[in-house]
Design a binder for these strands. Structure first.
Length: 472
RNA sequence: GGUGGUAUAGCCAAGUGGUAAGGCACGGGUCUGCAAAACCCUUAUCAUCGGUUCAAAUCCGAUUACCACCUCCA
């Protein structure tokens, strides 16, 4: 039975979707004014892994993730890059799709954009005004936070404490307009020259929080199963979403709130963020780091834990991943002399490992325990592949299970299990020559050939079944 | 100031009452002509102090350190 830690109740709860067999999931996506950094990637990877596990369990997952393509930062950055807000959005949305593809993050069922939902946003705001939850001042529309009686429940804060914090930060301009420092903007009046849309309150654009309420309602319904995002979105973003959605629909907004931990960097383990200017973009990191390694590193860290970004962390991940790939190559290699027929013991073992894996992952996506099961499976597979007699069905069963479990972490290893074929005649000759040299006990020559091939990225290994080669 | 989180071997990390999973790195070994790969072996009294208990990393209390949110941020 899958259990999920719900931020709202701060407890692990059994997961029962609203509609049996189907899961609706909304994950807050990035503001597209820059390349995504590793922290953004972490969130996308964490929830992609959640999605993949849910699908592995047999759920049909409808996954929506938005792009914030208009806000203050978009406007400022467009100005700095001497371009328009829509052009800026196109550029970085394309980059997002490219970067997430490299990390093997499945595209969402839908990637709606704020600017594609303006009429719906306006209607939503109108509803909130009609219900008395919002008010218009000089072309701005604000939400009356205190009017919503559950305000503060997600972040566990009292309204007065929140107000103490809020009043330190509101601008003088806002103080004059807002009824209360806690109130937040639903609609912002346009300043001269800014991108804007017509509305009942004059030209303007949506506030940040309203888009998620609108898009999740529009594409997933009034009540959704899972809403995900970074821990930094808990307050105020998600708090505000709840206030907007529940006030407008009168129904429960989200059944399970999930928040991922940060990527930290530096010796102080500081949060990587755009405002701290200590971020590394995915765009640049994948120039010199295998994206699969980055993916593996992140998807095998439980989503709520922080990940310390460092070369050591990545190196560990690379070593672990190589170990798993080698096991698959070992299994494939033995197919050449495998015997036909079933292997009951292997089938049973594979079932046992599968169950252990589920038990681990069912505990709030405990990927650390999940991957530990994979390591055990890999060890078992390595031992099996070195037995005197191996059955083809056994090799295939082990291969398939390893590949299946790894795919939940977003690692596709099909290619790894394909034995490298070498069509270069020259290399084939060298390998044959080395075999002869070894028979003649001319080890000087055989080692020369091995070194030479190694320089070309081909590794030779001598096994009881003969000489084996693979690419480094 | 308010709220939440974290502290386990060189590093990453599991473990929510019965004398510490797993991985990486290190060292030793098996196999090998030598390697490689694989496998085996070896490594900790769990931040500190106090309490509850036959028994605590695990429960309670206090303390310390670090991180995050309370303002845009995944």
């Amino acid at each position: 039975m899958l259990k999920i830690y719900n931020t709202l109740t701060r407890k692990e709860e059994e997961f029962h979707p609203l509609v049996p067999g189907k899961v609706s999931m909304y994950v807050c996506g990035p503001t597209v004014y820059n390349y995504i950094h590793i922290g953004n990637a972490r969130s996308a990877i964490a929830f992609d892994t959640v999605r993949r596990y849910l699908e592995f369990l047999g759920y049909e997952v409808r996954y929506v993730s938005n792009f914030t393509d208009v806000d203050d930062k978009m406007i400022r950055e467009a100005h700095e890059e001497n371009t328009t807000v829509p052009a800026l959005a196109e550029k970085y949305i394309a980059a997002f799709m490219e970067d997430t593809k490299a990390l093997n993050i499945e595209p969402a069922t839908m990637h709606p954009r704020a600017t594609q939902n303006i009429p719906e946003i306006i209607n939503f705001v109108k509803t909130l005004i009609e219900k008395g939850y919002a008010y218009e001042v000089d072309g701005d529309v604000y939400y009356r936070a205190r009017k919503f009686k559950h305000y503060g429940e997600l972040s566990g804060q009292s309204l007065d404490d929140l107000e103490t914090g809020a009043s330190e930060h509101v601008s003088a301009d806002e103080v004059q307009k807002k009824e209360d420092p806690l109130d937040f903007a639903l609609w912002k009046a346009a300043k001269p020259g800014e991108i804007s849309w017509e509305s009942p309150w004059g030209k303007g654009r949506p506030g940040w929080h309203i888009e998620c309420s609108v898009m999740s309602t529009r594409y997933l319904g009034k009540t959704i199963d899972i809403h995900g995002g970074g821990q930094d979105l808990e307050f105020p973003h998600h708090e505000n979403e709840i206030a907007q959605s529940e006030a407008a629909t009168g129904q429960k907004f989200v059944r399970y709130w999930m928040h991922n931990g940060f990527v930290t960097i530096g010796k102080d383990n500081e949060k990587m963020s755009k405002s701290l200017h200590n971020f590394i973009t995915v765009h640049e990191i994948i120039q010199h780091v295998d994206p699969q390694v980055l993916r593996f590193c992140m998807s095998t860290t439980q989503y709520r834990r922080p990940i310390q970004y460092s070369d050591d962390t990545l190196e560990d991940a690379a070593n672990n991943l190589r170990h798993i790939k080698t096991a698959l190559q070992n299994l494939t290699y033995r197919q050449s002399d495998a015997v036909d027929g079933a292997d009951k013991e292997v089938s049973q073992k594979v079932k046992d490992f599968d169950q252990q894996f589920r038990d681990a992952m069912d505990d709030d996506f405990n990927v650390q325990n999940g991957i530990a099961v994979v390591y055990e499976l890999v060890k078992y597979a390595n031992v099996y592949a070195q037995q005197g007699t191996v059955y083809r069905a056994g090799l295939v069963a082990l291969t398939n299970k390893i590949e299946q479990l790894m795919s939940i972490f977003g690692i596709d290893l099909d290619a790894a299990s394909q034995e490298t074929s070498i069509d270069d005649e020259h290399i084939q000759k060298l390998i044959a020559e080395r075999d002869q040299a070894r028979k003649d006990r001319n080890f000087k020559r055989s080692d020369e050939i091995r070194d030479e091939l190694k320089k070309k990225g081909i590794i030779l290994e001598d096994t009881p079944q003969g000489t084996r080669y693979r690419k480094a």
